[in-house]
Amino acid sequence: MSGCNCSGRDVLIPQVGVITDIRTETPDVKSFRVCAPGGGKLFEHMPGQCAMLCVPGVSEGMFSITSSPTVQDYQEFSIKRCGMLTDHLHSLSVGDQITVRGPYGNHFPVESELRGKDLLFVAGGIGLAPLRSVIGYVSDHRADYGTVDILYGSRSKEDLVKYDEITGVWSKADGVNVHLTIDRAEDGWDGHVGFVPAYLKELGFSSDKTALLCGPPIMIRFSLETLMEMGFSKKQVYTTLELRMKCGVGKCGRCNIGSKYVCKDGPVFRCDEIDALPDEY
């Protein structure tokens, strides 16, 4: 992120974004494509970075950019309905305008530590959002990475975000294995049933992979324990932290834990870095 204000625009001043596509992913998640009013992306980003979306007069909130940086025409966000802002976003239509500022935060180290590695993505529910950007990036730079395993779980089949893309695109890609699971058995599902951490144990991946882990806090905790049992070290596991945010640039104080500002120094952390933070996340 550059601190340059040569464009004359303060980092807190948003741009206008137009919603060009809305997809209903699950009963409470919709994906939104956002472009500049004249077309094209609002800004460049890296996988794992976030942006502040605002409906003026309603509220503003931080969301992971779920599209890959390699996508040229738009940025995509997958948003779970859970309050004032997200309810309102879900009521919008194609053509509606919102404001967007960003990108904010660090990103998964796709150009450094992750290069050449066998990657294991472990996601639960809406936690797929930040990982999907990495999966897209890795797919478009396939030769730079080893094998890819994607373990993704949700409450039920209809709660799996991006189901069509997962089964239609990712499952068919070279060197990519997809493992889906849902919490409870249901009609029309012949895949795995059970929680993500249990399935992770069952699959028993070799511990020379690098893991990227995102989802609800409880899933992260148990999946991390399982990975440790499987012989992974915390240095091989990356995750994201989610704290209340306002400014996105490390100044309003809200997302501060220890000497870190999650909006600026995160949201991506290696798990051994998280251990060094006071236990307040």
Binding site: P56, G57, K246, C247, C252, G253
Partner: peptide, 21 residues
């Protein structure tokens, strides 16, 4: 230096302002 960012409805638009928190 902690601050909040909020909305104020001016009647013909929405002003976003920051205030100490």
């Amino acid at each position: 230096q902690c601050y909040d960012i909020r909305d104020y409805d001016t009647g013909n638009g929405v002003q976003r302002f920051r205030c100490w928190d």
